[in-house]
Amino acid sequence: MELTKNITLGVYLPGETSIHRLDPRTKIIAAAILITLLLFIKSYQPYGLFMLFTIAVIIASGIPISYALCGLKPMLPVLVLMWFFQLFLYSAPEAEVIVSWWIFSATDAGLHMGNLITLRVFFLFTIITILTLTTSIVSLTDGLESLLKPLRMIGIPSQELVMTMIIALRFVLILAEELDKIIKAQMARGVAFDRGNFIQKTRNLFPVFLPLFINAFKRAEELIVAMEARSYTGGKGRTKMKTLHMGRVDRSAGVVIMLFTGLIVYIILSVNPQI
């Protein structure tokens, strides 16, 4: 049993490709643009193009495609559930009923909506995975900090917010590792996590989540002490050893993203002229 195997979120896969070498700010902005684009796509053709683009980026970054997508495995039940919800609960006025069962009925509009939303979450997850797989945690922090700096002027403690976010991201993997150990410790005492009815299965979660939470709080406390021991006082007066530079790769990436955005917008408009 190995829980951490399929976790790709927050994992960094070191490499020397141009995607790895991009300035973290470029990657973050590009990811933000792509995610925004996702919100406007309401038909399948742009998603086809999106898929090609995503695959191209994954190949360019040297990440094995199977690995980039294996993080989705644990999310699959959620995606399927979401698809069913949309299928049965969403309806438009002139929708045509495809299947009907008891009080539920699935319409073609619901099917379309389910597909769109599932695709959207799929791409959202993939984009963020590519970002974290190709960007080390330090440069991700630096990039986000630098991008959010203007917020300081209106009194938002951006540096602290970024630090909190990054720590949360790091803890995904740490907590998964701990969960793995705790589950094993309880399995060794005879808990059968895959047996029993719903109530028994829920009850089995107590011996897992209690130690997990207690250990998480302990860890958080230790982390605070460790940070304070190294004189962390928040963002004020902090300087950087490495300053960020945008270079030729970043300019070319900018051009690629702009071309891609233009193409997607063109397809959206030509498919759905009323938007």
Binding site: K184, G190, N215
Partner: peptide, 21 residues
């Protein structure tokens, strides 16, 4: 495997992973 795990006890390095009650 459930009965096997009862026959083979395993004590982990960190008791915090096991104790919950």
């Amino acid at each position: 495997l459930i009965s096997l795990r009862q026959q083979v006890g395993y004590v982990f390095q960190n008791p915090d992973y096991q104790l919950f009650a």
